[in-house]
Amino acid sequence: MRLLVIGGCGHVGSFVVPVLARAHEIRVLDLTEPDNPVSGVDYHTGDLRDVDLVASLASGMDSLVFMAKGPTRDWGSPETAYQHFDVSVSGLYLAVKGAVRAGVRHVIYTSSMSVYRYPDAEIFTFPDESVPPDATDFYGLAKRLGEEVCRTATAEHGIDAVCLRLCFPMPDEEWPRNERPRQRAISTSGRDTASAIDAALHRRGHGFDVYAISGDGTGKMMSLAKARRELGWAPQDVT
């Protein structure tokens, strides 16, 4: 397929785009240039809120893959919170507008399981996709609102929007990090993150969908049953 990947030079994009590029034609839009450009990938530098630019780059594309996010520096500061909302809400809204203008009918949004509140306990069970998100921190709330942008786009434009709730995605060579037990239990390798996005590319004709994506293949902390059933996806690298 032909994919416009917004945010393809960021943390997730840096290890997902090389995998996706093996099977798909990739065009990337990012504020910054890639540190390690992938051969054959068409890179463009620009603002995702530029509707005309997005529409131009989305022309002829089969899907928009939106993985842009705010910065990690000064985490919790008002400025950082503002930038996360700006990307996940207004930025996503405008990028989808541009893509739809160009005729794109399918969107993948890399959301996060942070849309749910994290209890203080180290080991707990996340709700499944049938439970409405309840996060109140700025990051989780921004991701929640991003999902609502996608839901609204399906109603307004009649497109398909697939939200993947990622869990600590990281490069294969770093997976799994020896961190707190709950982070290690749900962390996701780069190849599994890429394969989830690839599976979501084929989920069409169903409007709005959300899926938990994690390396927790044994279901210790969350259920991946919906992704297995509807996407045909399950992690190969299991914590």
Rank of each mutant, 00 (worst) to 15 (best):
Ser88Ile: 04
Ala58Phe: 12
Ile197Met: 13
Ala225Tyr: 07
Val12Thr: 14
Met1Tyr: 08
Asp216Leu: 06
Ala234His: 14
Tyr116Ala: 08
Ser195Ala: 08
His202Lys: 15
Arg203Thr: 06
Ala161Ile: 04
Ile186Gln: 09
Leu20Gln: 04
Trp233Ile: 05
Ala196Ser: 12
Val149Tyr: 12
Asp86Gly: 00
Leu29Pro: 00
Arg117Phe: 00
Val115Trp: 13
Val238Cys: 07
Gly217Lys: 12
Gly207Cys: 14
Gln236Leu: 08
Leu20Val: 05
Tyr43Pro: 00
Arg229Val: 03
Ala225Gly: 03
Ser114Ile: 00
Glu122Tyr: 12
Leu3Phe: 06
Val28Pro: 00
Gly219Lys: 06
Val238Ser: 07
Gly146Ile: 07
Gly10His: 04
Ser189Val: 04
Ser111Asn: 04
Arg204Thr: 06
Thr152Phe: 14
Gly205Val: 11
Lys220Ala: 08
Ser223Pro: 08
Val87Leu: 01
Val149Met: 02
Leu31Cys: 05
Leu20Trp: 08
Leu166Lys: 01
Asp237Val: 02
Asp30Asn: 11
Asp52Leu: 00
Gly13Glu: 07
Met222Trp: 00
Lys220Asn: 06
His202Met: 10
Arg177Glu: 12
Val87His: 04
Gly91Arg: 02
His11Thr: 08
Ser88Pro: 02
Tyr93Trp: 04
Arg204Cys: 06
Ala102Asp: 10
Val19Asp: 11
Ser63Met: 01
Gly7Asn: 15
Val131His: 11
Leu4His: 05
Pro132Val: 09
Ile186Arg: 00
Met222His: 01
Ile123Asn: 12
Leu29Tyr: 05
Ile6Asn: 01
Asp192Gln: 02
Leu231Pro: 08
Ala58Gln: 10
Arg180Pro: 01
Ala99Leu: 03
Phe66Asn: 03
Gln236Pro: 03
Pro171Met: 10
Ala81Ile: 11
Phe66Lys: 05
Tyr118Ala: 08
Gly7Phe: 14
Glu156Gln: 02
Gly91Asn: 02
Ser39Tyr: 06
Arg229Ile: 01
Val16Asp: 01
His84Met: 08
Thr193Leu: 11
Cys150Leu: 13
Pro132Asp: 13
Ser56Thr: 14
Ala185Arg: 10
Gly215Ala: 11
Ile123Met: 15
Ala234Lys: 02
His206Trp: 13
Val238Lys: 15
Ala199Leu: 09
Ser187Gln: 11
Cys167Ile: 04
Ala234Pro: 07
Ala227Thr: 07
Tyr139Ile: 10
Gly98Ala: 08
Val12Pro: 01
Val17Asp: 03
Asp134Met: 15
Trp75Lys: 09
Arg184Met: 02
Ser111Tyr: 09
Thr136Ser: 05
Pro71Ser: 10
Ala58His: 14
Leu94Glu: 03
Val131Pro: 02
Lys220Tyr: 09
Phe138Gly: 01
Leu141Tyr: 06
Leu29Trp: 11
Arg180Cys: 04
Tyr116Leu: 03
Thr80Val: 12
Leu164Met: 06
Gly103Cys: 13
Thr152Met: 09
Ala212Phe: 13
Ser39Glu: 15
Lys220Cys: 03
Thr72Arg: 13
Leu20Lys: 10
His202Tyr: 14
Leu3Arg: 02
Gly10Tyr: 04
Ala200Gln: 15
His106Asn: 06
Asp52Pro: 07
Gly7Thr: 11
Asn36Gly: 00
Cys9Gln: 03
Tyr118Val: 10
Pro235Tyr: 11
